[in-house]
Amino acid sequence: MPNLSVQLGPLTLPTPVLVASGTFGYGPEYAELIDLNQLGGIVVKGIALHPTKGNPTPRTAEVASGLLNAIGLPNPGAEGFIQEYMPFLRQYTVPVIVNIWGKTVAEYVDVARRFDTVEGVHALELNVSCPNIKEGSAMFGTCMDSFRAVVAAVRAATALPLIVKLAPNVSDIKEFARAAEAEGADAISLINSVPAMAIDVETRKPKLANVTGGLTGPAIRPFAVKLVWEAAQAVTIPIIGIGGISKAEDALEFIIAGASAVAVGTASFTEPRTVLQVTDGIAEYLERHGLESVDSLRGSLNTGSDAAVDTDSETN
């Protein structure tokens, strides 16, 4: 049996497959359907210092092989989350990673600091890349000066392992990956959703009340794999690959491209057991290829001149 545990800097995950922020609630939502202790980690939905209501409806729209969303990060606030959900999450051994966001650097720092002493929180994921918040968040992910400032400030404010979630809509992902590493991030995760929109042509109205949103799901996977591959060549800190993973083969692409771990997102909506199926599939793959650990597969992309293959399972 291959060793499925992975190390993300100071954070040890029992398996390399997490559930992505915003797609798994705070844990209880799926606990009746799957054993949370079989997950590599739960990245909870984004938490700000104060409660936030989120965007008007409609908040999501299904598109070909994807989901467009502008939920707007509704959340019970740090105190609300700690009181309502941490007692539940502490019953499990699964690593809990709290995704945090704010509208100013000071808000990011305050919410990061609040979690520093909360029992059962294993790491923070810094959300600097939600495309659906009018102030703050997205700007931090795409403007280099703001990005550096918020990562550095949060790094100084927390002793917890810090994962920085990168925005995909930047001209050079390597620069942001390097900046995160330079400012003290323990790991990076990518990609967040891709800014996008859809229009109902009969009414000429946007399909989202927020007009624009973020695209997730299988449609963005090849884009995400490419960005993970680029980031992996730019940094030595571990990478969590995210974007359209719905089966083990998808996750393996990210790992071969250089990710140490992956997160399942939208696919949990389609099939709540996806995260477990992906985990089993990775174990089966490692065994079949005689590999002892995820790490021995990581970054093993063969780009030699004879490497490209014609078979493309996606077009079958």
């Binding site: 915003g22 797609t23 798994f24 609630g25 939502e29 799926y30 359907l33 939905k45 209501k53 989120g54 409806t57 409609p58 908040r59 999501t60 989901l67 969303n69 939920i71 509704p74 949990s268 909506f269 709540p272």
Partner: peptide, 27 residues
């Protein structure tokens, strides 16, 4: 009947405004 996503309470797609005891509303 609202547009629905996950069906189990995680995605927050199918929300509607409901009155609260304090006179406010909540999704």
């Amino acid at each position: 009947d609202r547009n629905m996503g996950c069906g189990v309470g995680a995605c927050l797609t199918c929300v509607l405004k409901v009155k609260q005891p304090d006179g406010e509303w909540a999704w």
